[in-house]
Design a protein around this nucleic acid. Structure first.
Lengths: 253, 253
DNA sequence: TCAGGAAAGTGAACGGTGTAAACCGTAAAC
DNA sequence: GTTTACGGTTTACACCGTTCACTTTCCTGA
C-alpha cells in the first residue's frame, strides 16, 4: 500500500542478472546441453557459487527457468490464436492447444522441465501456481471465453463428486475463476478434464512411449481432440476445427 | 538351434549377480534414495567399476531395473484381476487398470523410471519393447480377451488415418496382435487410445500437476475411465465397473 | 595334471556435479 | 565519511559416471 517507489539502481542491476541467468539457461537447453549451475555460471562469465546469491539451490534455478520458459512459450500460443478472428472462440482454443503440442514436440527438454519435474511436497503450493501459471491460464481463459459466448452445458455442482466440488469451489490452480458463480463452477471441472487430456497425449508423445509413426502424424493428438470437443458443445463445429488443427500440424512439421 | 545346453556354473553365478543388482537397485528406490552406480555397488559390497562387467553404462542399469520393476509390478496387476471370475473380462481389465494407477501413486519414483524417462533415439526399438513389455502386454491382452468375448464395435481399417493404419498393421509395440486379422486391427487403435488415456491421468497425478484433493480422491481417474469404457461397448456395465474400481481405490488408500 | 586364458574385481584417477564456508572489494546507506 | 551489506572469488567437500591398469580367481583345454 502507499506509493511503490521506483527501483533503485542495485535492484535494477539485480533484476538484470536474473534475466541473464534465465537467458543463459535457455541457451544451454536450446543447445541440447545439460542445465547445471556450473554451466550457467560459466556462460555468464562467473563462478558457480556466485549464483547462490540469486537462487537458493539448483531446484530453485530449475523452477525459475521453468516458469520463464512457460511464460515465453505462452506468448507463442497466444500469437497462434491471434491469427483467428477474435470471436472464433473455439478456433482460438484449438489452435492454441495445437501450438502447445507442437512446441512440446519441438522442445522436449523444455517441456520436461516445466511439466514433468515432480512437484516437491515442501513448496507445493508455490510450485502449483508456477506450473499452470501462464499456459494453463491462457487455455482456461480461452475455454471460459468460449463458454461465456455459447453457454454450452456444464456439469452441475450437485452431480460433481464431493472432492471435485470442493476443488472447483476453492481452486488451488489459479485458473480463470474470478467472478464465476458457484453454479457455474462445473466449468472448472471441464478445465481439469481438458488439461488432463491434453497433458496425457502430449506427454506420451514427447516421452516417445508410442509408435513413432503415430507421433509423427499427430493422429493421436487429433483423435484426442475429436473425442473431447463434444464436451464443449462443439460437436457440430468439429470438421472446421479439425481443418484448422491439421493445417497447423502440417505447417510446423 | 540344436540342444540348448544347461547353464554352466559361471553363467549361473553371473545371473545371480544380475538379480542382486536389480534387488539392490529396487531397495534403494524403495528407500527414497537416488539410483546410482556407486550406491548400488556399495550395497552389494562391491566397488563401482565392477558393475561395468554387467552393464555398459548407467543408462543401461536404469533400463535393466526399469524392465524388472515393470515385470514385477505387472504380477500385481494380474493378481488384482485374478480376484475376479475368469469370464469377467471387463471387470478384470478395469481392476488391473486401477491396480496400475494405485501402484504408480504409491511408487512415483519407480513409475517415473519406467514410464517417464525419455526414449533414447539410439536404442529406440529396444527401449520401445521394454517400455510396454509387461504391463502393456497385460492390459492389451485383457482388452483383446474382452473383445473376443463381446465383439464390440471397433474402427474399420478404412476409416483409420493412413499413418494409424500402417501402425496397426505392422505394430512396433509388442501388443497382442498375433492372429489378429487385418480387418480386426482397429482393435490395436483402441489399445493405443486406452493406453493414452491411462498414461495421461496417471502421469498427471504422479507428477502432481493437479489439485491434490482431486488426486487423493481419484475422481479424475474414475472420470477418465467413465468416458472411455463406452468405446469398449461397456456403457451399460459402467455402474458395476465403477463400484469395482471405487472399492479398489478406497482399500489401497 | 598343469599351463593358459578369460572373467571378475580392485584401486587410483579424471572430469563433472551441487553445495558450504571463509574471505574480500566495492558500492550503497546513514 | 564511516558502516554495512551485497556480489563476487577461492577453496574445499562429497558425491557422480567412467576409464585404465592391475590383480586375483576360476574354468578350460591339451
Amino acid at each position: 500500500m502507499g506509493t511503490l517507489r521506483e527501483p533503485t539502481r542495485r535492484e535494477r542491476q539485480r533484476e538484470a542478472t536474473y534475466d541473464e541467468i534465465v537467458r543463459a539457461s535457455r541457451e544451454l537447453l536450446a543447445e541440447g546441453a545439460e542445465l547445471s549451475l556450473r554451466a550457467v555460471a560459466a556462460r555468464m562469465g562467473v563462478t558457480a557459487p556466485a549464483l547462490y546469491r540469486y537462487v537458493a539451490s539448483y531446484q530453485e534455478l530449475v523452477d525459475l527457468v521453468a516458469y520463464e520458459i512457460d511464460k515465453a512459450a505462452t506468448i507463442g500460443f497466444r500469437a497462434a490464436a491471434d491469427e483467428l478472428p477474435e470471436d472464433d472462440y473455439a478456433g482460438r482454443l484449438l489452435v492454441s492447444t495445437t501450438a502447445f503440442r507442437q512446441w512440446a514436440l519441438a522442445s522436449p527438454r523444455e517441456f520436461g522441465l516445466v511439466f514433468a519435474n515432480p512437484v516437491a511436497d515442501a513448496a507445493c503450493v508455490r510450485r502449483e501456481q508456477l506450473t499452470l501459471a501462464s499456459s494453463g491460464h491462457l487455455l482456461t481463459g480461452q475455454m471460459r471465453a468460449l463458454w461465456e459466448h455459447t453457454h454450452h452445458p456444464i456439469p452441475s455442482l450437485e452431480e460433481l463428486p464431493a472432492a471435485v466440488r470442493e476443488s472447483v469451489l476453492d481452486p488451488v490452480i489459479p485458473a480463470e475463476v474470478e467472478g464465476l458463480a458457484p453454479a457455474e463452477r462445473g466449468l472448472v471441472w471441464l478445465y481439469m478434464q481438458g488439461w488432463t487430456q491434453l497433458y496425457g497425449v502430449v506427454a506420451l508423445e514427447v516421452f516417445g512411449h508410442m509408435d513413432p509413426r503415430v507421433i509423427e502424424s499427430g493422429e493421436m493428438f487429433v483423435d484426442t481432440l475429436r473425442h473431447f470437443v463434444p464436451r464443449l458443445g462443439l460437436a457440430d463445429d468439429w470438421p472446421r476445427l479439425e481443418r484448422l488443427v491439421r493445417e497447423r500440424l502440417a505447417s510446423a512439421q
